[in-house]
């Protein structure tokens, strides 16, 4: 199948190095300490952060660090066919773990000993790249909650189809069966916190694809920073400073 036409356009009209439209909103869940909605094209996720708060299960308390927990789930209506998915299936568990580890790498947990931070992410609408969108949403929500972080973590996926590296795969491209590299970086520190890939890719091509994903992550980071700035300005305005 032709995922990139000879004219250099993808199935949805993007060029190989373009991302989908992204949009973010802070403060979607007022009860939570921090929350955000993040959209990448038709992928839409919501993230809520509770904490830092007292550790609920004392046996899990860590004296030197904060305990970070993460729960990923998909809304039943998030895909085309409405399906009831059992909670805690293999895939969700894995993604929860991936997100937790990614976020833990940037939260300054040593500043918050004996406390707990809960991150809940839910996919409202899935169209490829849910993992990345969840991480981006979680970053925003953590920032909204005022949790100290080393840097913003941002994530973006990239793939390789028709011998072309493609940025930000949507569902159709994702299900083509080609390699799908999900990357998470700390953009200011230039460090990689997450790198996942299904299927195989020669190492030199992987470098190209990764480079593309890094640029995607950085573009997202710029956008997130803008959103945060805007949010701060509004907070400032509301306080009447």
């Amino acid at each position: 199948m032709e995922y990139v036409s000879p004219e250099g356009l993808r199935l949805d009209g993007r060029r190989p190095m373009e991302m989908r439209q992204i949009r973010a909103e802070i403060g979607a869940v007022s009860k939570a300490d921090g929350s955000a909605i993040f959209e990448m094209g038709n992928t839409k996720v919501i993230a809520a952060v509770y904490g830092p708060r007292e550790v609920q299960n004392k046996s899990q308390q860590i004296n030197s660090h904060a305990l970070v927990r993460c729960e990923y789930s998909m809304a039943n209506f998030s895909t085309g066919d409405r399906m009831r998915k059992s909670k805690g299936d293999r895939r969700s568990t894995e993604i929860s773990l991936v997100i937790r580890q990614t976020m833990e790498a940037c939260i300054m947990t040593h500043l918050l000993p004996r406390s707990q931070i809960d991150i809940y992410v839910q996919v409202l609408q899935a169209d490829g790249g849910t993992r990345s969108a969840c991480i981006n949403a979680a970053t925003l929500a953590l920032a909204d909650a005022g949790i100290p972080m080393r840097d913003l973590v941002t994530s973006c996926s990239a793939g390789y189809l028709n011998s072309t590296p493609l940025l930000d795969l949507n569902y159709v491209e994702d299900s083509a069966g080609g390699p799908d590299v999900t990357l998470g970086i700390l953009p200011k520190l230039d460090k990689v916190t997450l790198l996942q890939m299904d299927s195989k890719l020669p190492i030199d091509i992987l470098e190209n694809v990764m480079q593309l994903a890094i640029e995607g992550c950085k573009a997202i980071a710029n956008y997130i920073r803008e959103i945060l700035l805007e949010n701060t300005k509004q907070l400032e305005y509301r306080r009447g400073v």
């Binding site: 949805d12 993007r14 439209q21 038709n42 085309g80 169209d127």
Partner: peptide
Amino acid sequence: AIMLHNKSFVKKTKGGKVMKQVREHYLR
């Protein structure tokens, strides 16, 4: 400058189910 627009159509799956599909369609 890109306009975003969603294309939606109905598709019959292999199993015979009729499903609504929504795809992004960027106009440039």
